[in-house]
Amino acid sequence: MLQEVERWLSRRSWSVADRSPERLLAAKRASGTSVSVVLPALDEEATVGGIVEVIRRELMARTPLVDELVVIDSGSGDRTAEVARKAGARVVHRDEILPRIPAVPGKGEVLWRSLLATHGDVVAFVDADLREFSADFVSGIVGPLLTDPDVHFVKAMYDRPLGAAAGQGGRVTELMARPLLNMHWPQLAGFVQPLGGEYAARRSLLERLPFPVGYGVELGLLVDALHTVGLDALAQVDVGVRKHRHQDGQALGRMAAAIYRTAQLRLARGHLGRPELTQFVRGEHGFEPRTYPVDTEERPPMSDIAEYAHRRVA
């Protein structure tokens, strides 16, 4: 590990317990910083309501750190929108945001569009499939952005159990993302959960970054944030244990391909063809191929979008 990263770990890695709610609230009021929380959601009726209820109770009523709570529904076929709205969130459908540009499937697409649907100086993203959700996931990642003006981007870190096996989650992280980062962006080797879906950043940074439309969004934002504001402006906070719905091996394969492609684009922009990934499933006559396109599209920095620039002037 680089000495620079070792120093960073001692300066920019914290625990959620390092900042009390009272300290965070005082810092928020002193700075006048507003906070938006975004939950990207697709068929998450079983968990989204509980997450919304915890954030509203703990971080909007009891300790008012969060000013805006928005669920972006990316086309759910279940009751996700209804459950989230009933729990107290503002729900916006992905297709209602920036309708001039037709939406494409993907988590990154939703996160990119959320910048137009929110107004906070700090934007925190939280996955909508978390179980046994704690408000620490939000206060932890927002905390350094309220108390440390030099910090611009904060990732949550946590244990990720896989069933009864402690620390066995995050398979794509260990098999794909961590080797890529260590080899090509060694300054980012200190991040415990580089692909985690819980992170917060200053709007002034997010609006300058391109957003991969699919699963590569977390790696893409992390790498681009490093190049935009430098390692010392990045941080991570330990928030405990993350429990969520795990995907099967083939879904993880597609995720890994998108993440690898995102890394490729950042290493050699403009010199790559449109890739595909072929996987196999056993069918009536043996193994049958299934070929999927790998997410390659990226949305430009939101500051380049006319509607966003107009909103800022207005």
Rank of each mutant, 00 (worst) to 15 (best):
22 E>D: 15
308 Y>H: 14
251 A>I: 04
286 G>T: 10
7 R>M: 11
127 D>T: 04
311 R>Y: 13
302 M>S: 11
212 P>K: 02
234 L>I: 08
291 T>G: 08
70 V>A: 01
231 L>H: 09
115 L>Q: 13
264 Q>M: 15
49 G>V: 09
194 P>T: 09
273 G>F: 11
112 W>N: 02
124 A>N: 06
81 A>M: 08
293 P>M: 00
150 D>A: 15
164 A>G: 07
258 A>W: 00
7 R>Q: 14
40 P>T: 10
19 R>E: 12
267 L>C: 08
57 R>S: 15
204 S>D: 13
12 R>Y: 07
96 E>S: 13
243 K>G: 00
145 L>Y: 08
104 V>A: 14
211 F>A: 02
217 V>Q: 00
167 G>S: 12
255 M>E: 10
183 M>A: 15
132 E>V: 05
92 V>Q: 07
60 M>Q: 15
233 A>F: 03
252 L>T: 00
298 E>D: 06
141 I>D: 01
8 W>F: 07
95 D>S: 12
274 R>G: 09
124 A>R: 03
143 G>L: 08
131 R>I: 06
62 R>C: 06
262 T>Q: 08
35 V>N: 02
196 G>V: 04
42 L>D: 01
160 R>C: 01
213 V>S: 02
67 D>N: 11
15 S>L: 11
201 A>I: 01
91 V>R: 02
63 T>V: 15
170 G>L: 08
154 V>L: 08
247 Q>H: 13
110 V>F: 01
139 S>D: 11
